[in-house]
Write a protein that binds this DNA or RNA. Structure first.
Length: 642
RNA sequence: GUUCCCGUAGCUCAAUUGGAUAGAGCGUCGGCCUCCGAAGCCGAAGGUUGUAGGUUCGAGCCCCACCGGGAACACCA
């Protein structure tokens, strides 16, 4: 069944055609105020202006509205059509017709929402964590929003290809390899404690911004480094043999990675020589090794990099599972996957005269931007823009993408604008829609970026754990008699759902303030409220026993208000898909729960006479199924009982 | 310096992308449990949409200038 808005669009469109012999958008919208009607067309005012411009004489919008209304073939859809204000055409839908529509969608698992006519292949690029770093709250929004958008587009019937463009390449890998080298050597040479002491010392010196102390640490690190090197000069004695059997864990790796970064970035590292190189240059050295991974001489570096990737992805997958996000290991195609394509990308851009040489580097001058998009450094190295362009080309030519959606934070706005422009200019994305769905920062109660009390970035896992713990506390308080397994399962659904919903319910473009108390509240636009509303509807059926569900007949205004809203799900899904903004669906579900409350308070179900009871039970069932479908499209669970 | 995003009730957020009287929740005040789940529901108070112009039948939304907050800007990703 087409949406009501779509049906009215068609009817009004042909009425305008009949009246004025012209094609025009009838501007169908839902009435804001119930007293006007249910839907309205705002076309008359625009048409009046258009005609005035054409003929040079004044046109009265109300008269135009009357001519449209005269041609309307609404059949049994509406009971009332009125013209109001400057020329609004208000339509009140027929309760009988609405009842028929509900009975029609009742039989349909998709709730009457037809798949789109022309299915597209859409790539959705989201999450994108970095290797050797645990996911933190900064990755939450991309992961959650990207997942919800994917689900909605998929439900519409599009072919969705999820792409996890992980940060698994680049100059930072020298540091990662160096960190693993320290890890392995320290372990084998009984220097773990010594290394840990240095790590703690460096952190203290960095926190205190004490340059002199940092210099001392760097000196000590260099000493340990030289000792390691003396025991295993080319990695063949300890590093390589131990590497293949190494069980690398992300936690220790990340700590050591940060340590290596702090050490090699410090000024003192320039003065500390390791063989022919200063300590600071070692990461760059490893980076050059790793950029030739197929060379047998670089086997150990390549293996270390792979270990780091595996350890990171393992942890990410745990998070994805916990979040109930539909990102699978097979969706991972990170920056490293495009390395072979980069020279070709640059060559093609140069051949097309889109990229030019500038100060020894290769850049694309994008109109409107002062800074160009860099695609090759003067030393021949490539940049993330190059990788992004290679990914676009791959997605279009190999994956057959007709639309590519990026959910990444708004700081990348300029970067994506330049990359998209370049992809269009070179011709790869000629008939492809490239869309950037940016989002703002997650803030703490203080209005500053969300951090722990000590000021550190909050690990995503810790945030989710706390949400579940708080939810468990609430469940235990309200339902102490439930067995612990059940309570934990509910707490998982509620806690994780609350975090996800809080993120999805806000317009993604602006920053938003995160507060555990608010997102877990049972009042207001929260996941627990919707989950509760749905559990409450379902409980009616437990109470009703074997009562039958029957034909829906709408009489009470509360039934009508609920019915009209249920029938709007398809319109809202269209809107979410068009704008890539899941918060419209959240607002819809919240309104649905509110209208159900009105119905529930005023319309007895079980105690009613058989025919009415059957009708109202069917309405309850449709409400529950709409809530369930909506929550599923957001990626949020709905426990049977709370 | 250039470019971009955001300023809406005390607080957290909406407003069908230019439509009618700017809506919710929290908080405040007042009601509702012999009654289908009170983790709930109903009602009241609360606004010069940062400021000042402009565009038109109509502006929270578009244009201009300010004010305030945030961000990105050549060899990191």
């Amino acid at each position: 069944m087409p949406t009501i808005a779509a049906q009215l669009d068609r009817i009004f469109r042909s009425a305008i055609q009949d009246a004025f012999n012209m094609a025009s958008d009838p501007q169908i919208g839902v009435s804001q105020n119930d007293k006007f009607g249910d839907y309205q067309s705002n076309a008359a005012m625009g048409l009046a202006k258009l005609m005035a411009e054409k003929t040079g004489t004044e046109a009265n919008p109300r008269a135009i509205a009357e001519q449209i209304v005269a041609k309307l073939k609404l059949g049994d859809v509406a009971t009332e059509v009125t013209i109001a204000g400057p020329g609004f055409i208000n339509v009140r839908l027929s309760p009988v017709w609405l009842g028929e529509r509900l009975n029609e969608i009742f039989e349909d698992a998709r709730l009457g929402i037809a798949p789109v006519g022309e299915a597209q292949t859409i790539v959705v690029d989201y999450s994108g964590p970095n290797i050797a770093k645990e996911m933190h709250v900064g990755h939450l929004r991309s992961t959650i929003i990207g997942d919800a958008i994917s689900r909605v587009l998929e439900f519409q019937g599009h072919k969705i290809i999820r792409q996890n463009h992980i940060g698994d390449w680049g100059t930072q890998f020298g540091r990662v390899v160096l960190a693993i080298w320290y890890l392995v050597l320290a372990d084998h040479l009984n220097q773990v404690e010594a290394l840990n002491r240095l790590v703690a010392w460096m952190k203290a010196a960095s926190d205190a911004k004490d340059e002199a102390a940092k210099g001392e640490v760097v000196h000590a690190v260099a000493e340990l480094h030289r000792y390691f090197l003396s025991q295993d000069p080319d990695g063949s004695v300890i590093f390589e043999p131990k590497l293949s059997s190494l069980k690398l864990k992300l936690g220790p790796l990340e700590a050591l990675y940060q340590f290596v970064t702090a050490v090699t970035d410090s000024k003192a590292a320039e003065g500390e020589m390791i063989g022919e190189n200063p300590l600071a240059s070692l990461p760059r050295l490893f980076t050059t090794f790793i950029q030739d991974p197929k060379n047998p001489a670089n086997k150990q570096e390549e293996l270390a990099w792979r270990k780091a990737s595996e350890a990171t992805l393992e942890t990410c997958n745990e998070i994805y599972t916990k979040l109930g996000v539909k990102l699978l290991p097979g969706d991972v195609r990170g920056e490293s996957a495009y390395q072979d394509d980069l020279p070709g990308v640059v060559a093609e851009l140069k051949a097309g005269k889109i990229a030019v040489e500038s100060e020894g580097a290769t850049v694309v001058m994008v109109p409107g931007y002062e800074a160009p998009l860099m695609i090759q450094k003067s030393d021949g190295g490539f940049l993330y823009g190059t990788t992004d362009l290679a990914a676009i080309r791959y997605r279009i030519t190999k994956l057959g993408a007709q639309r590519i959606v990026y959910t990444h934070d708004s700081r990348q706005q300029q970067h994506f604008a330049e990359v998209f422009w370049t992809a269009k200019q070179v011709g790869w994305a000629k008939d492809v829609t490239l869309e950037y769905a940016p989002f703002g920062t997650m803030l703490g109660d203080d209005g500053k970026p969300f951090k722990s009390r000590s000021g550190a970035t909050v690990k995503l896992k810790d945030l989710l754990d706390e949400a579940e713990e708080r939810a468990l506390k609430a469940v235990t308080e309200k339902q102490p008699d439930l067995p612990e397994v059940r309570r934990k399962a509910i707490a998982h659904s509620v806690g994780i759902g609350a975090v996800k919903y809080a993120d999805l319910a806000k317009d993604r473009v602006s920053d938003y303030v995160f507060s555990f108390d608010k997102i877990l509240a049972l009042d207001g636009n929260t996941a627990p409220y919707l989950q509760y509303a749905r559990a409450r509807v379902r409980s009616i059926f437990r109470k009703a026993g074997d009562a039958e569900v029957g034909e829906i007949v709408l009489e009470s205004p509360f039934e009508l208000a609920l019915a009209k809203h249920i029938l709007r799900l398809g319109e809202v899904i269209d809107q979410v898909a068009r704008e890539l903004k899941p918060h419209h669906l959240c607002a819809y579900l919240y309104e649905l729960a509110a209208r159900f409350s009105g119905f529930f308070e005023n319309c007895p179900v079980i105690q009613s006479a058989p025919a009415l009871r059957e009708s109202r039970l069917a309405l309850c069932d449709l409400t529950a199924r709409t809530l369930e479908r909506g929550l599923e499209l957001l990626g949020i669970e709905h426990p049977e009982q709370m």
